[in-house]
């Protein structure tokens, strides 16, 4: 498995307009109270006694079962191609009644549009292949903390990874002098950790675990939208995530981890995988497993290879949904219902 890049274009995500002054942008929006507002703080956050705290959600699925996925293409008729992806929110068996919106577990909801291929502007330099531009943006209400309208570094990071994952899939030589834009709006993002850990109670390590699932979803949904737009690809690419989590001191491999369900995530890996070529177009590992020489005394410790292989398995699961969603659309198109 090696990464093949068809295009040598630099990431177009970092276009110069990003660096516009926030002041300038804010003047064009309604900004609300001058003094600024603060997010509501729930009294449960501040409970001193751990018994008063609501219980941490736990994973109810077996380790190798992915969350339910909903995928549909053609949600934005005005775009060349579009798709919508939704991952089911984890069901918390322990909570009796659904809490208020802001404390309930969230799923993942992404919408993606593809515009193009269309001719590059006259001023652009000649390009022998298609120029791919990706944008990933969180909606202001996508996460527990309200997001701004300006892109932050996480969003740019996601855009770069997505671009890398898709660049190796599109047969770029078929569209010289043209460009295609992939735009993803995250209507609801994965949480980085359980909200109870937000106030530095737990000794959870790094943040940003939620980004892994988000990126995996972005890859799958973008792949569906590109297929919907009728852009030639070597295969449909799917994203998958696997993680090593510590449960009662024992490291364990899980597919499609939900960060809020695991207190200690040691490492996570996301791949963009092409099943028919057995090729990975994007690979990103976060966290540290430790070196292999520890494996003798602690046989459960997974290696990076195992982690990647499991992420590929997760990607295969997503691929299956992707194919069936595309088939469904094709059937409707051909009138076979």
């Amino acid at each position: 498995m090696d990464a093949i890049h068809h295009s040598s274009e630099p990431s177009a995500t970092l276009s110069p307009t990003h660096n516009m002054l926030p002041v300038l942008a804010d003047r064009k929006r309604v900004n609300g109270p001058l003094g600024g507002t603060s997010a509501p703080i729930y009294s449960k956050y501040l409970a001193k006694d751990p018994k008063e705290l609501p219980e941490r959600p736990t994973r109810s699925r077996p380790n190798n079962v992915l969350r339910k996925m909903f995928l549909k293409t053609g949600v934005t008729p005005s775009a060349s191609g579009s798709a919508y992806l939704e991952l089911a929110a984890p069901i918390n068996s322990k909570s009796v009644a659904p809490g208020l919106a802001s404390l309930s577990p969230s799923g993942l909801k992404l919408t993606c549009t593809v515009h193009g291929p269309r001719p590059l502007p006259r001023t652009a330099q000649f390009s022998p292949h298609i120029i791919l531009t990706t944008h990933v943006k969180y909606a202001p209400f996508a996460t527990r903390k309200r997001r701004g309208y300006l892109k932050d570094s996480n969003e740019r990071d996601l855009g770069v990874h997505l671009e890398a994952a898709l660049r190796g899939v599109i047969i770029g030589d078929r569209w010289p002098k043209s460009g295609v834009e992939v735009i993803i709006t995250i209507l609801e993002g994965e949480e980085d950790q359980w909200w109870g850990d937000d106030i530095s109670r737990g000794n959870t390590s790094a943040t940003g675990w939620g980004m892994m699932s988000v990126l995996s979803g972005c890859i799958t949904v973008a792949s569906a939208a590109i297929a919907d737009a009728g852009i030639d690809c070597v295969d449909v690419v799917a994203g998958g995530v696997a993680a090593v989590v510590k449960e009662a001191g024992i490291p364990n491999l899980v597919l499609d981890p939900v960060p809020s369900e695991h207190k200690d995530i040691i490492a996570a890996c996301i791949v963009a995988y092409l099943p028919s070529r057995d090729e990975i177009t994007d690979l990103w590992v976060k966290g540290e497993i430790g070196h292999q020489n520890q494996a003798e005394d602690r046989p459960q410790t997974s290696t990076y290879e195992e982690l990647t292989d499991n992420a590929v398995q997760a990607a295969l699961g997503a691929h299956r949904v992707l194919i069936s969603a595309l088939k469904e659309t094709a059937d409707v198109k051909l009138g076979r219902t």
């Binding site: 079962v65 996925m69 998958g240 398995q313």
Partner: peptide, 18 residues
């Protein structure tokens, strides 16, 4: 390990046939 995945209903678009 093999991955299991299922299709689900959309929350955003509701039950109305989309």
């Amino acid at each position: 390990m093999a991955a299991w995945v299922e299709r689900k209903q959309s929350l955003v678009y509701g039950s109305d046939d989309w």
